[in-house]
Simulated scan of single mutants.
Amino acid sequence: MKPEPDFLDQPYDPRDPSPWLALYLDRSTPLDEAVKRAWLADSSSRSRQYVLPFVRPLARTLIVLIQVLKTFTPRKVAFSRALHRLLAWGMENFIRPEANWLILRHFHLGSQVLQFIAANAPVEVPTHPLRPRRIADVREEMFLVHDLNLYNFVIRLNQALRESGRQLQRVERPDLSMIEQPPLRLEDMPRRRRNFLDLQSSIELFTPIYQLLLTDSDFWRATNSLQLDETIGLYAATLLDAHSHLVLVNNRHPLVPMSTLRAGFRLTLHGLSTEMLHAVLIQLRQRQDAAQAAVPATSAAACAGSAS
């Protein structure tokens, strides 16, 4: 496979401007530079252009057919272990390196965001961070646990707030110690010729498989967890007093469950929203670290001045 493109090396023709170059150069929304490059490389791939238009209607048709099938099968039958082994196999053998890197990053970023909210909440909230280092780690039911973590966090946080009679509020100096770039390298992802499938196409294909091998309850909970993006965004915005960033959240409204047919598209939005929130927190930590580093230097200069 060819390495990800360098959009800045692409020729610029004002009569035929590249939409990918425009999106790469645009800085109106927060996004890590390496993530943006990988995201746009995946989005501009031939797989997304030629495979996704056929995969998406097929996947949505399968969701309807599987839903019909599930009405005549036991509701508690699930094959979670088999599902996650199948997902890991598909990621290892068919998905583009950029897509695999973004998927594994998502588990780290989601865990860091929940840890950030927990650390700055006025109550104690346990978290269960997920930090996969390689694709094989996904086999440990990681997708399912990721959804459970989100719901359990929202429940435990709000139970504790209710019992204490407190609420989330702005934190003057938020604890950002858990916010960092995950120790994952794009170059370590599988890069064989058969690793061609883009992120959105793979998500669309995985969705009906997810539905088939899990219970209706697990699948419904997973797809509707995407609408908690606004909930998590509100928590972070309240702690930071930065509600303007909620414009980046697209999976709304949490009180109005949506059809599972668009779960693949909404899952892509969920991944991008998480990346953008993490980018905001990274920028805040960098400014906080820079301010802390400047304090000793100022103190040293003041001491030197008084000594002279």
Rank of each mutant, 00 (worst) to 15 (best):
A41L: 12
Q292A: 06
S47I: 14
A121S: 13
W89S: 03
R185V: 10
N224P: 00
N251H: 09
D13Y: 11
S18K: 12
S47L: 13
V247S: 14
I155M: 09
Q211K: 08
L8Q: 12
D289V: 11
T268L: 13
L213I: 06
V247D: 13
E140S: 06
E140K: 02
V55A: 04
V77F: 05
E4C: 07
H128F: 09
W220R: 07
Q211E: 04
D137Q: 09
A88H: 07
H243A: 07
A34V: 06
L269V: 05
G165N: 07
D175V: 03
N100D: 14
T127I: 13
R262C: 02
L83W: 10
Q49C: 01
M258V: 11
R15K: 15
P257Y: 05
D16L: 14
L52T: 03
A297E: 15
L197K: 09
V64I: 10
S201C: 06
T231F: 03
I155P: 01
H106I: 01
P296I: 04
P257D: 06
K76W: 08
A119K: 14
E204K: 11
S44C: 06
T61P: 00
P122M: 08
R139W: 01
L86R: 08
S225R: 03
L130P: 01
D6G: 09
V35H: 11
L58E: 04
F72G: 00
T231K: 03
A263M: 11
T215H: 03
W89H: 06
Q167L: 10
A291Q: 14
Q49F: 08
W20I: 07
E275Y: 12
E33A: 15
T238G: 06
R81L: 11
A59L: 04
R81K: 13
S244G: 15
L240Y: 12
G264Y: 10
P254R: 05
F196T: 13
F79N: 02
T298D: 12
L109F: 10
S217Y: 01
V249N: 10
Y235C: 12
S47G: 15
A293H: 01
W39T: 08
R134G: 04
D32M: 06
